[in-house]
């Protein structure tokens, strides 16, 4: 029974449509225009400049620097995080002792706010009060790096925190996928004398392909963002010599420190297009025939 009751439909949809239209759709549509303007601060009006912002972008070292860092994250984070998460998920689902404790523990960092994690880890890395260097000195490394203060180690230090935070999250996602694989498959493999490695590569991984695809797209979108952790751990300064700057921190600085609204929105537009392109390519490249079971 489908009903047509406009007296109900309109008041039920109106609040959502009004809020969404005003605060979400309208700003996104406006952004499409602002990216093509020069707009220096709220008191002035935006002035249409065509493609000027995008031309400037192509010649801007800061833009390429930030994009390069995002590029490193896009390559490193999925491989290390998803690889490790798959390994953990496979181990825990193989009837290991205390598996519930591990599942609950490993997921916890995902629940914490990114600011809390950023601050906690900037303490861990801190050259004088940090526990990491205290540990390194304890085991005899007399001159440990200053991590976040050194352009050579800062980006890696931030990537490590991101992996620390996300591994348990992806592990739980993979575990859900693994639990839907019928145990008879494993039993049959075990009867045939398959090793754990065989079982993992021949059974688990192929049957987990759809989950892996979604996880891959999701983690790549996150690797293109990285705003919260970078902004917190480098106190908004984008690291020594911009060594940890990413597109999101760059456009935030352009907009809210330098009041270059038009240019910042053009960076945001480039960022959006790159994310769309990457997601599209990833979905295409990883497409396989689904295995029904």
């Amino acid at each position: 029974m489908r009903r047509r009751k406009y007296s109900l439909i309109i008041p039920f949809l109106a609040p959502a449509l009004i809020l969404y239209g005003t605060f979400v759709l309208y700003p996104y549509l406006q952004a499409m225009y602002i990216a093509f303007t020069s707009w220096r601060g709220l008191r002035r009006a935006p002035r249409f400049v065509g493609l000027e912002n995008f031309q400037k972008l192509l010649g801007d070292d800061h833009f390429w620097n930030a994009l390069y860092h995002n590029g490193i994250y896009v390559v490193v984070l999925p491989i290390v995080t998803l690889g490790f998460a798959l390994f953990l998920a496979f181990m825990i689902t193989q009837k290991v002792r205390f598996s519930n404790f591990y599942r609950v523990t490993f997921f916890f960092p995902q629940v914490m706010s990114v600011v809390a994690i950023g601050i906690l880890w900037s303490f861990v890395y801190h050259p004088s009060i940090g526990i990491l260097n205290a540990f390194l000195k304890l085991i005899g490394i007399s001159n440990p790096p200053v991590w976040l203060g050194d352009p050579n180690t800062a980006l890696g230090a931030i990537a490590a925190v991101t992996i620390w935070q996300a591994a348990g999250f992806y592990m739980v996602i993979f575990m859900a996928g693994m639990q839907s694989i019928p145990t008879s498959f494993y039993e049959a493999a075990a009867l045939d004398g398959a090793t754990r490695g065989n079982i993992f590569f021949r059974i688990t991984l192929p049957l987990l392909w759809e989950t892996t695809r979604s996880a891959l797209v999701f983690i790549v979108i996150n690797a293109m963002n990285m705003f919260g952790i970078t902004f917190t751990m480098t106190i908004g300064e984008a690291g020594p010599d911009l060594a940890t700057d990413v597109l999101a921190t760059l456009l935030y600085r352009e907009a809210f420190t330098h009041s270059r609204f038009g240019y910042a929105t053009a960076i945001a537009m480039a960022y959006f297009l790159i994310v769309m392109f990457l997601s599209f390519v990833l979905m295409r490249v990883t497409r396989r025939q689904t295995i029904e079971f």
Partner: peptide
Amino acid sequence: FPVFLALVPLF
């Protein structure tokens, strides 16, 4: 859309 695209117009 990423929220970063809306930041300036939203502000």
